[in-house]
Write a protein that binds this DNA or RNA. Sequence first.
DNA 1: ATTCATATAAACAGCG
DNA 2: ACGCTGTTTATATGAA
Length: 672
Amino acid sequence: MMVESASETIRSAPSGQNGVGSLSGQADGGGGGSSGGGAAGPAAGGAGRDSAVGADSNGEMSPAELLHFQQQQALQVARQFLLQQASGLSSPGNNDSKQSASAVQVPVSVAMMSPQMLTPQQMQQILSPPQLQALLQQQQALMIQQLQEYYKKQQEQLHLQLLTQQQAGKQQPKEALGNKQLAFQQQLLQMQQLQQQHLLNLQRQGLVSLQPSQASGPLQTLPQAVCPTDLPQLWKGEGAPGQPAEDSVKQEGLDLTGTATTATSFAAPPKVSPPLSHHTLPNGQPTVLTPRRDSSSHEETPGSHPLYGHGECKWPGCETLCEDLGQFIKHLNTEHALDDRSTAQCRVQMQVVQQLEIQLAKESERLQAMMTHLHMRPSEPKPFSQPVTVSAADSFPDGLAHPPTSAAAPVTPLRPPGLGSASLHSGGPARRRSSDKFCSPISSELAQNHEFYKNADVRPPFTYASLIRQAILETPDRQLTLNEIYNWFTRMFAYFRRNTATWKNAVRHNLSLHKCFVRVENVKGAVWTVDEREYQKRRPPKMTGSPTLVKNMISGLSYGTLNASYQAALAESSFPLLNSPGMLNPGSASSLLPLGHDDAGAPVEPLPSNGSSSPPRLSPPQYSHQVQVKEEPAEAEEDRRPGPPMGPPNPSTAGPPEDRDLEEELPGEELS
DNA sequence: ATTCATATAAACAGCG
DNA sequence: ACGCTGTTTATATGAA
């Protein structure tokens, strides 16, 4: 206890804060001020343009063989992926397949899953980890499919470009523009790649910001960040339509640096499928209805040229109209000959493809891990034990904004069992923690995931108040000293092993601030107890509507099983602890309490914790049992050890009053 | 736009 | 004097 304090007192408040800040900022951009957030784009672009030189312009055009080789590899990966998907993910895959065929954007999948337009957080709060996992899986599958689709297209295009150039013979390169543009493109590409990865990570981790509004906002700013489908737009030269290749390229360079928002489609020119292309649903969700048709069409139609479709040249950034194939060929040979520019474009395209390959590989790996995990225990919401090491590596491949978790991550790269459930928002969880306000049962959540939180440097999605309460209620006598509370925090959450000054202050602040925490003088000092009544009181009964939402959502998902688990979760949510003092067993609780979210507040009084005690007895200034225990008798006796009316305190508690924390698992065991 | 809940930071007082 | 504990105030942010 004391020992720690020394080291902790100082440093690191900032890190946590910063982390939160940054994350929340992002979230904000998506949620509330989507419009505002979207504006930023240009600035970055400008910077990029100036320094564009950095991009290496060297590197000769690799031989066709190389390209072929790459294609082969990529295709193999894709095939593997398909196989995996087919074998393991039958149900979700099937469901999504249709959608994926038309809808490419991630948001779509989400929309599918959450008819009610719940925010990710809400979903997290409402759904239990297993449910989230299922959702995530679905989404994952969809995303990968989409990726793959796009990937194919890219491969095809690349190939064609190369061939075309070869056909055209060798025309003299016009060096002038080539390099600069290449540099721009490459730089932009890199940036976008990073962004993309980051976003994908975020999505993965916490179903982050898949909201329609967010999708549209940030996307504009970071085109690439979104998803493969948007890649094509990268190429878009602003004024491109109808312009000669050269011109379009120039513009492209400019545009790219300036505003990433420019959008010309590369694989699927707007004109190609006027009615089909991008649609925006009423709710603002961008949807790509059937862009792929185009791409597939080339493949299928032998007579046509892959780079030619719907009377248009499909060369990246070029939308020159060509009446017929002959004219197109001519155009191709003229405008897209083997010169620096074309080479550069080709290279960029290669990078795009490579990036996609990488992405695909990662996703495949992830999928496999997920499937493995799920197969092992289909319905078991266990924290981990997954041998999967994948997460560690791919979680944050890039160095981009990682959640506060960052550094000291003690150990296991585990990911929250529930997958998005809480951690994900790992980063931003700071603010709205689920536990309190919604049904989320901290106890059950903890029970299920305590291993995770214990080892992963992830901020728990609970409020300080709920955590403190949990800590106190977990003890047999429902009372803890401040230091014991600290210890509980550090014992239960890796996250709280850092930034101690910050969160300890917060804990103290919460103890003082909330009426539900009652300080009781003790011989030994003071202990803190929980006034359950106050605790219930303090949260607004907002959950009222939620059940409906949840139902709808669930029905929408058509996850029968989920429904069950959800109910179970709800049940658990209540106060398992109260029921059996000393017993944390969620299971028991669930059976006892059919419903009632934590918060149901007044109505939910039902906690039989003391049977009568809670409601009536409490009337006086007393707070349930705990207080009594401590107040008088306790004084005499002192610790809870003997006093606890509760049953068999766990071994851990048995130990020294304060030190029980030393070890790890006392409460944890019970929980799980 | 307002209100509420929460998080964070910090100042301050009392106590051992 | 120092550190811990506890209270309080201020500010920022997200959500309803």
